[in-house]
Simulated assay, not measured.
Amino acid sequence: MTKIFAHRGASGQYPENTMLAFEKGIEAGADGIELDVQLTKDGRIVVIHDERLDRTTSLKGFVKDTVYNVIKTANAAAGYDQTYRDIKVPLLEDVLLWADKKDFLINIELKNSVIRYEGMEEKVLEAVKRFNIEERIILSTFNHESLALCARLAPHIERAALTSDVLYQADQYITSIPASGYHPKLNSPGTADEVLKKMRNSSIKVRPYTVNRPEDMKRLFEAGADGIFTDFPAKALALLKNK
């Protein structure tokens, strides 16, 4: 059965990468959540997608140039109405503390392909180990050197290669990292389907992103995708139930 991941939480309806969006994703019945991490100027792991604060928060500038005590004053629901004025940028440890007593998967995307955050892998792994939930974690990144480092530091934690384009001999490449998951971008119709066909005889888990249209969801369910990342987990789950 295809697993449904709430992409940045239930971000189609709630401010992305916030505790509210994650809670709503799990309330909708998602099998897991996906979140993005960056490092602040003082080395804290914050959950935010962009390298800059501008799009999703009330602050401006780079995450890497801003200390956490400043970031925690920001409204993390920029672009939303006043209903969400008290939404904060969470720390990774806030999410893990909330998830600790629950039972769902957590895909942590390391946002280190634009800015190569020194020591990010060690910091994230230390946080995951502190909460003793390694078996529920998937580490993913577009930076495959970083993925290889994670394999050396914590071989028992699942790893997945993110790509925005088609890989040649993807199964061999991903195995060489080594990783056991492949998260391809849902580009044009058929791209992810081709990947699924090629991977059918491998043990690599294919989970395309970001799958928001009902027709794409249905097609990927039928093609046997191991998972999908969607901004609308409730919609995906309703379709999966009626498959």
Score class of each variant (00 low, 15 high):
Leu162Asp: 05
Glu135Ser: 15
Gly227Arg: 07
Leu147Ala: 11
Lys3Phe: 09
His183Glu: 01
Leu220Arg: 04
Pro189Ile: 10
Ala225Thr: 00
Lys72Asn: 09
Asp31Thr: 13
Gln38Asp: 02
Gly227Met: 02
Val206Leu: 06
Glu34His: 12
Lys243Thr: 10
Ala21Tyr: 11
Ala192Gln: 03
Lys123Trp: 04
His49Arg: 09
Tyr182Thr: 01
Asp231Cys: 06
Asp50Met: 05
Ala127Gln: 03
Gly43Pro: 06
Glu122Gln: 14
Ala21Leu: 11
Arg207Gln: 10
Ala6Cys: 03
Ala6Asn: 00
Ala225Trp: 01
Leu35Trp: 02
Pro208His: 00
Tyr209Lys: 11
Thr230Ala: 08
Ser176Tyr: 01
Gly119Ser: 07
Lys101Thr: 13
Asp171Lys: 14
Leu186Arg: 07
Ile71Tyr: 07
Ile157Asn: 10
Gly224Lys: 06
Ile26Asp: 08
Ala192Leu: 08
Asp36Glu: 11
Asp226Phe: 05
Val195Met: 11
Arg152Asp: 13
Arg213Gln: 14
Phe22Leu: 12
Val206Lys: 04
Glu158Pro: 03
Asp86Met: 09
Ala10Val: 00
Lys102Val: 02
Met199Asn: 10
Arg200Val: 02
Val195Ala: 15
Asn201Ala: 09
Ala236Pro: 00
Asn69Val: 11
Met120Pro: 11
Ile115Arg: 08
Ala234Leu: 12
Thr210Gly: 13
Asp216Tyr: 00
Glu109Ile: 07
Lys197Leu: 15
Val47Glu: 00
Pro189Phe: 07
Arg219Asn: 13
Tyr182Ser: 10
Val37Met: 03
Val70Thr: 15
Thr163Tyr: 05
Phe232Ser: 12
